[in-house]
Design a protein around this nucleic acid. Structure first.
Lengths: 237, 237
DNA sequence: GCTGGTCTTTGATCCGCGTCAAACCCGTCC
DNA sequence: GGACGGGTTTGACGCGGATCAAAGACCAGC
């Protein structure tokens, strides 16, 4: 049952608006936007679908318009780790690598603008401003990855789960009425794959938060944060 | 006792050659190289010195010519984690962030070409090829960080230490005669800060490798890998 | 209704690694 | 020489989270 997903932050707007908000295109003027639209392919992709397989040569690149994706790296013994989550506005794919190092899979039905790598690279040749935006975004992603290195190596399971929930709330909240209420776009085992924990440990920690009255679990995958302060306290440990 | 450092992979060459090999400048022609030299300041920095403090506004940027640096991020409770090591040819600093998110400190006396951020950014405006190199390097660094996320969250102390030694050997080996022999540029506690382990655990694992005959510790901080295959075996676990 | 499948929760047990503590090694200084 | 002091090694012990195992939830299909 994945009909309870409400993760798209807003109903899809017109293609142009959506793309203009993205990392790649906010640096382009109208004429250039038209050019990049000419090579872009708007597509909706269902949950579970894989956009990029590890090792793909010439994998796609895209802008994520709505939905959530996971970036998965396989360990040697077939145990996977989720090294990144992608939200609306994020750039998908590796423009320059000659083969993809990670698998990218859809968590919530997603809208994408897909670009052929070669064509996109060509557009970037003429638009250093867009390329600089990609650079800044790559550095921001690196910063994020390093933040997670700290969390993964130093924090306890308690703190990991609390940190994760705060992070997800920040990115998924309907900015509107119901602050602190959102639907997790992923299963417990996928949360474990993000945090480097087993599914059982994740479940125990989430239950502990519910029992302590810090969160509520109205059902399905939805989560309500009742006590932000105490949750933040656990995350800091 | 840091006279035993032999970490510079080769005796320093002339400034021009050294810089040409680096990430930043291999895309420039001779005239542009001259321009970038004009804004660069060649300096030698002793071990222990701090190049960038967390929070610095307008921190330096530089190319590392020889030596090894560590990139340290502080956790909330004053426990530090080393989120990256920098080797000759690597780019130092954050060109675009308005305040540095990490502290950068010298492990082995280092030669650097230091650039003022504003001037360097200005040079990049006119050299998209150089900027693209920075982008590719940022993506490579991100890839590395994600590799470490896997290691930190999934591997045992045994595997972490083995992986670390293999990595250091790859980067520090005199490519010449003595393959598998190198001097660690850091203390046990710094190794712990890289691997997310305590100093005691690092010590125990290193000792275990020595007892098993997989490595030898001739003294000081030097390490000899006697059995690459078994070391790789432990790293895979 | 019942049955089979997947995901989640809960319990019991084990072991790896953090913690605390003490000894050791190898410099420098007096 | 002996006394320091920082880094390293070794030991004893306890706890957090993995592992193994089983019981619920919840849904799909019949």
């Amino acid at each position: 049952m994945r009909s309870e997903r409400r993760t798209a932050v807003a109903p899809p707007r017109c293609s142009t608006c959506a793309v203009r908000d993205s990392a790649l295109c906010s640096a382009l003027d109208d004429g250039d936007l038209a050019r990049i639209h000419a090579i872009g392919l708007r597509r909706t992709v269902a949950a579970e679908q894989v956009l990029v397989w590890t090792g793909d040569r010439n994998a796609i690149c895209a802008n994520l318009v709505s939905g959530v994706l996971k970036v998965v790296r396989a360990g040697p013994d077939r145990q996977d780790h989720i090294v990144g989550l992608l939200f609306p506005g994020d750039f998908v794919g590796e423009l320059f690598a000659d083969s993809a190092s990670d698998t990218v899979q859809v968590l919530c039905d997603a809208d994408l603008c897909i670009y052929p790598r070669a064509a996109l690279r060509h557009v970037l040749d003429d638009h250093p401003a867009a390329e600089r935006l990609l650079l800044r975004r790559a550095l921001a992603t690196l910063n994020d990855a390093r933040k997670w290195m700290l969390i993964l190596s130093r924090k306890t399971a308690r703190a990991k789960v609390a940190t994760f929930l705060i992070d997800m709330a920040r990115r998924l909240d309907d900015a509107g009425a119901a602050a602190g209420k959102f639907d997790l776009p992923m299963s417990r085992s996928e949360i474990g794959a993000v945090l480097g924990l087993t599914i059982e440990t994740v479940s125990r920690q989430v239950t502990a938060l519910r029992v302590a009255g810090i969160i509520a679990l109205p059902g399905g995958r939805s989560v309500v944060i009742r006590d932000h302060a105490r949750l933040a306290g656990r995350a800091a440990a």
